[in-house]
Amino acid sequence: MNEDKLIEAAKKSVEQQPVPDDIGRRLRLARAAAVDEMQDRPSFGWALPATAAAAVAVIAILVVREPAGEVVLPDLSDDEMSAAMELELLEDMEFLAWMLEQDADAG
């Protein structure tokens, strides 16, 4: 038997397989029950886009927001770091000078 004939014979055998009356009746009942479910179930067509948008918003918040209590240090080179430290020192000295002035005024 060549391939085409074999396939044709198999196709016919399956398609012409007799469906017992009882099975046919139960298939119709199963179909009716399935179709009825379409009426019973509310449509959630809007839910997918809404859920996706909410998920994107939550992820964005989690990614952008820094954890509480953590100080994020900038990534500085050695030169930048020493310059920043000098600036900090100057600011501190200015602050001390201001405090001494305040004390002198109060005294």
């Binding site: 397989q17 099975i23 298939l27 179909r31 179709v35 479910e37």
Partner: peptide, 30 residues
């Protein structure tokens, strides 16, 4: 439905199991 039952019947070799399979398939699709 009939073709699905025939295929399932050949696959599982039991008409009632085949019916259950088709029934479950219909419900899942819906």
């Amino acid at each position: 439905e009939r073709q699905a039952w025939s295929m399932a019947n050949v696959a599982v070799n039991n008409p009632d199991d085949a019916l259950d399979i088709v029934q479950d398939t219909m419900l899942t699709l819906v």
